[in-house]
């Protein structure tokens, strides 16, 4: 599976992106900063400060701004630079702007795409957004295609068939009341992340067990 730039890809669990945090994510070899203000949704940016190229995933959050760790350049949620501490009286020109990518949170997963346009398929649609519980993210040392292959043939216990709900997301039904959605995220040619969420009355109580079964799947793929 290659990452089409116009394809929405799940890159993190919303639950694991803390308030007031900036986090490093790699998608198709591109370094991204996935950050959240003190409140509000998760944003996905290029992991690079326009000033000196420092990674913005090392940055820190104040209110709804992300600040670079190097010289404190301060960016609003749309990427616009608001303040440069070394020049306190200067209003930064509009041209100083961090590169942003589209981001959406659906089913507890943060999705992004590297092509910011409106080309390509819509986000996976599995019905209402409510009721999905996070399971966990996994990071597998294998390329995306064998990981996807293993996912389609996996056994999470008492399950029905695995079916694709997008080019890079699969759904597993475990009994009548538990559904697991797994987003497949190609980091580079050698690493693939999986982001799993579950829905149903047993989703919260089954979370620890599902996480362990997914860890076993990860380890089995790497041994193969």
């Amino acid at each position: 599976m290659s990452v089409a730039r116009e394809l929405w890809t799940g890159v993190a669990l919303d639950d694991q992106i803390q308030a007031a945090s900036s986090n490093p994510v790699i998608l198709d070899g591109q370094a991204l900063a996935v950050w959240r203000g003190e409140e509000g949704p998760v944003r996905v940016w290029e992991d690079r400060c326009p000033h000196r190229g420092m990674r913005l995933s090392f940055g820190f959050v104040r209110g709804e701004t992300l600040r670079c760790i190097y010289h404190g350049w301060t960016y609003a949620t749309d990427g616009q630079c608001l303040a440069i501490p070394a020049h306190p009286t200067l209003a930064p020109p509009k041209t100083i702007c961090a590169s942003t990518y589209p981001s959406e949170t659906r089913y507890g997963i943060v999705w992004t795409k590297l092509d910011g346009g409106s080309n390509g398929a819509a986000l996976p649609d599995l019905g209402p957004d409510e009721g999905w519980e996070p399971v966990r993210s996994l990071f597998v040392h294998a390329a995306a295609s064998p990981v996807l292959e293993a996912l389609l043939n996996c056994d999470l216990g008492q399950q029905g068939p695995v079916h694709m709900v997008a080019e890079n997301a699969a759904e597993v039904e475990i009994g009548p009341e538990l559904r697991v959605l797994v987003a497949v995220h190609a980091m580079d040619d050698e690493r693939t992340a999986l982001h799993a969420v579950a829905r149903g009355p047993r989703a919260a109580s089954e979370r620890a067990g599902l996480a362990r079964r997914l860890e076993r799947l990860r380890d089995d793929i790497e041994r193969a």
Binding site: A12, Q16, S21, V25, I26, F139, M187
Partner: peptide, 13 residues
């Protein structure tokens, strides 16, 4: 890198 360890990142913070 810390990319593969979301729980470690949150614990460190």
């Amino acid at each position: 890198g810390h990319e593969e360890y979301p729980a470690l990142r949150n614990w460190m913070r």
